[in-house]
Amino acid sequence: MALVRGHSVALVSLLQRRAQETTGRMQQWLEEHYQAEMKSIDQLSEVVRYHIESAEHLKNEMVLRGTKFFLMDVCRVENPTALRIIQLECLYQGFHLVSQSGVMPSSGLYKVLGEITSVHIENSKVPYIESLLRDKSEHIDWRRLLLSAALPWPSPSVPQLLAVLEGFKAVDSDLTGYVSEDQYLQVELWFSDGTEDAQGDSSEMPSSKRLAELRKFFFKLFADHSSLPSRLHYETMLRYFAADPDPREGFIRALSLGLGKQVKSPSQDQLVQSMTSMEEEVETSELSADNQEEKALDVSSTSSAEQEVSIPALLAVIGRKVPETSQSQEELVQIFAELNCGWEDSIPFSVLCQHPAFQALMKKSTQHQLIDIHDLLLCCLDGTDEEEQDESDSATSL
């Protein structure tokens, strides 16, 4: 019995010593770890203080990972005026819940933005955003809004849009007009290398990481998620990217995409001269029957190398809203009739552009106008996910 008790006492003493040694080592490790963390935080603070005092922008991303602090050599700090991808996805989820079609009543914009951002939005900002997006039927296309929110992104030229269109058709072997996400990722977009000029603030080029994230976000934004798997109507997506701050230029870019060939328009000076000559001609006298025949011959004898357009091709570009398309159809029929052409006839685009009514039609096609409201949305979303971001930063520093 005494032997068992002695052995037990010796074993307990051994366990106590080992426990004390382990506790001491843990305490020492925690102190060293804490000192290393504080040193890294001090280094980060010193770098931040230096840039603040010298009024210099951070050119490299600062990373605080555990006890280590370092600057990334190959990753630049994202443009502070650009919305984060998580904010864009938050906006997308909110709008998609309201309307999966992408079109919603303009009156609901304030409510949706308020619910998504969870912050107060100035009453004067929302009507301004609505006025830029609202169509004649008092609806807005929220995908246009999110495309503006994603700025800056590289703006494609017409040849680039046509090249990407051909790339999608190549992977769409059955020519259904749709591609899956895997097929979408196989096609090289115009900003794959990140070397093109950015639309918006071109002084801050998006990093390669952000461009890769935007590429995935754009599929989510424009894809039809009601089918399994999700699929993307690629020509519709490219038509959004054909938009331009000038609605007339956006219309011509979208028309080029629809025809599959670049449409060249006459310069503004040529259009002004043409309008002046047409007004003088109307003031002097009406065209005789012979003159009308000559005019028809002039239209048909225009250089064959020039792109020609028909009423159906123009209607495909003008819009998706039935009332607006019906009104535009009547206007186009009248314009073509004045040029002695019918529904199935094609007219050189340079000739069509000289008609004042067609110029007005292009100018009011605001669905092809690229709006720039991401600064306003940035202000609205300034508080979005702020607490989550603070928690993430705190977790990173521990």
Rank of each mutant, 00 (worst) to 15 (best):
R5I: 14
L11A: 14
L14N: 15
R17G: 03
R18K: 14
R25F: 09
Q27N: 11
Q27S: 10
W29Q: 06
L30Y: 13
K39G: 12
Q43G: 04
Y50A: 07
I52F: 06
I52V: 08
E56K: 15
F69I: 09
L71R: 02
N79D: 07
R84F: 11
S101E: 15
G114H: 13
I116A: 00
T117K: 00
N123L: 12
K136I: 03
W142R: 13
R144T: 12
L146K: 09
A150Q: 14
S157I: 10
V158L: 02
A163M: 09
A163R: 11
V171T: 00
D174R: 02
S180M: 06
E181N: 01
D182F: 06
L185P: 15
E188I: 05
G200Q: 07
G200V: 09
S203I: 14
E204F: 01
L214K: 06
R215P: 12
F217L: 10
K220W: 05
S230F: 00
L238P: 02
F241E: 03
A243V: 14
A243W: 02
D246Q: 02
S256N: 07
L257Q: 07
K264M: 04
Q273I: 03
M278T: 12
M278I: 15
V282T: 12
T284H: 13
E286W: 07
K295R: 07
V299N: 05
Q307F: 02
A313D: 12
L315Q: 05
G319W: 13
P323W: 10
P323V: 07
T325G: 08
Q327C: 09
Q327E: 15
S328D: 06
Q329L: 07
Q334W: 01
A337E: 11
I347G: 00
K363L: 11
T366Y: 10
L370Y: 15
C380E: 01
L381D: 12
T384G: 00
E387N: 05
D390I: 09
D390K: 15
D390T: 06
E391W: 13
E391D: 10
S397P: 01
